[in-house]
Write a protein that binds this DNA or RNA. Structure first.
Lengths: 217, 217, 217, 217
DNA sequence: TATGAATGAGGCTTCATTCAT
DNA sequence: AATGAATGAAGCCTCATTCAT
């Protein structure tokens, strides 16, 4: 009788399996998007790679786009978590911590960051998933607010250049965004693993708005 | 007899018309890509907007991808021209001129720059147009070489931080790339026209590798 | 000991519950077909509305079509009952009673009558349920025979026009059929509740084959 | 040079071929709907039977539903034409002409009439083709008006029973509708070709509202 | 016994490309 | 030389039915 499960235990077990499979779909999609390119991935591919039937995918996601947006949300949430930790450190006296955390989490898996960027363009005006895109935007907006507050304090303390706070974080966002692209751009004689460029850029990101560095052009 | 054209004149005339029509196809494609989004543009749309038949498009371009790659090449060539002028100025004593020229030309029409970035992802592994993609990469490589040389001289003169020269231009590329994305990212409370952010970023781009600013993290 | 049931009582209890659930499935199907339209009803919908699992539906009916055909049979049986009562009355001296009973039972719930008509078309050549369709046809055939006999007697008595008896009941069937459609046809400026049209048509149905009304065209 | 066609002649020729092919699609659809049943006909079937590619169907019709609605409109227009002729005759002194024309045109190809009835149910709430359904309803509404006027005059002349005019034509519609169903209903021992039932019903249809026949039930 | 997750055949539609005129 | 009708591969999604728990 030891292996008998109560009814509620069995239900919980089932839910866990269901969620695991959902994760398998996400993982399979990610692998395929990264290895094949967004265009060349079909729902059939995903199902096959996840080891399930095509129809099963639709038990977890109403449309293909919902898979894509889910990938985006998962990623954005992980960024948020890291950023929040960095902001906390900054508030405790390490001025560069937030920027560093931000750059590090975006450049930790640049291929994923880039995938998310491109998914976003693709989903820009998708009719389904409007709601999830809203969620995404709100997530970012809350990050934005947290950054704005933190930066304002750094400005007040004289650490950062006194420009509108968003200048600082938007410039950081832009640099990170570009750094990610850089890792994949085939035109450049550049392979991210082989040298200190990422550190160089991160250092720029960390210091770029510091007081005294910026002069009106 | 004044309106009689010699055989070679007629041939030249025809070639001119042919080239004009080719440009019309490019222009129509561009307008559509920018207004409708890459996904929603079909060859039929392009032909209609260009005012010609669908079949005629295929007299000018062997595949749809050839149109896309052509847009990329045209754009990259215009960047090259501007950059070359900037480099020349830098060599004549204005240290920031190259960087400034580069940022200005990429941010002059950010929507176009961004389109080209996204086209590049789409064409990443396209079987046709491999050759043209090669051309594109070579164009960039020659720019790279020119930058490398120029930057080395700036380092030698003590203007720029002494790191591998590519650090400087790749960081600039990344920042420009990100600045372009920034203009379109819907999550940010940001509208490029309304403030000095672009100038702020450009200023960072111009000064970011200057000696004394970079400290190993 | 009062709540102890004997084995056979328990079996009977179970059967009763089983039949109740079967009726719940039928009812749920009917509600959905009427409210959503035949096309938009899935087995999943039915199960949900019946408050049971999808798999359970298949314990009661081998295929979806069996549910549909069951609805048809139930309906046809209720018509049969009413018609039999009407025929009995006619035999007892009220000549229009059978026709009236027939029209009344079909027009009592026109939406249901119409649903059955449309189900019939859908099930026309379904491979499964051939047997049940046979049952349906036999039910009707027995009604037909009863009508045929009754009408023949009315003809013999000089009440009805002397044409083949089936002319009378088929014409009545046709008029009833059409009257039902009429209630739902969106093209007509007609709302069944608002006037005496149904009575008018029923009156025609009751009198239409009476002697002296029909003249060869 | 005799087989040389002018430019405009060739364009006209092309248009004719295009329309012919459109008709081939309609014809193929009709044949299939009638022989296989509405459910079992796919766009692929239609294309195959029409001897063209699947994609070509979509050069002529935006969606599958547009084919269906086109069949309905074509049919309704032919009814309209016949009815108009019948009404004209009635106005010229033949009281039953309109009803007879109406019944004859609906019962001339009962299988087609029935198909149209069932298409209508299927297309009831289709999102595309709303416009065409509007056309259909308007076509019927104009028929309705013509009938209303004509019937009112017959009532005024004492030919028809004095009930609201729509009673007359709606009853006729219902009877015709039912008669069509009758031809196909497999439950009845009835084969339309073999006897005078259609005439019997038509005669009822022609005389059913005549003065003196109707008595309140 | 009841369940509902899993399945995959099959439907509709799009669109780059071809080719006869 | 220019055209656009024709094509069909390929994609997304639905849903009746099965079957392990």
């Amino acid at each position: 009788m030891g292996n008998q499960l109560s009814s509620s235990e069995r239900i919980r077990e089932k839910k866990k399996l269901f969620l695991q499979r959902e994760q398998r779909i996400i993982d399979a999609s990610l692998e395929l998007f990264l290895s094949e390119g967004i265009d060349r991935v079909t729902v059939a591919n995903i199902a096959q790679r996840a080891g399930i039937g095509k129809g099963t995918v639709y038990k977890h996601f109403l449309t293909k786009n919902e898979i894509l947006v889910r990938i985006m949300l998962d990623y954005e949430r992980s960024i948020t978590t890291n950023l929040a930790a960095g902001i906390a450190q900054t508030e405790q006296g390490d001025p560069g911590a937030a920027a560093k955390a931000y750059f590090n989490s975006r450049l930790a898996r640049p291929e994923l960051d880039r995938l998310v960027q491109h998914l976003e363009v693709r989903l820009d005006e998708a009719e389904d998933i409007r709601e999830q895109m809203q969620q995404l935007h709100e997530l970012r907006r809350s990050n934005e607010q947290a950054l704005e507050d933190m930066i304002q304090r750094q400005i007040d303390r004289g650490v950062l250049e006194d420009v509108p706070p968003r200048y600082h974080y938007l410039a950081a966002w832009a640099l990170a965004q570009g750094a990610v692209e850089l890792c994949f751009n085939k035109s450049w004689n550049y392979h991210p693993d082989s040298d200190g460029l990422v550190d160089f850029i991160t250092a720029i990101g960390v210091t770029m708005g510091n007081r005294g560095q910026y002069r009106k052009s």
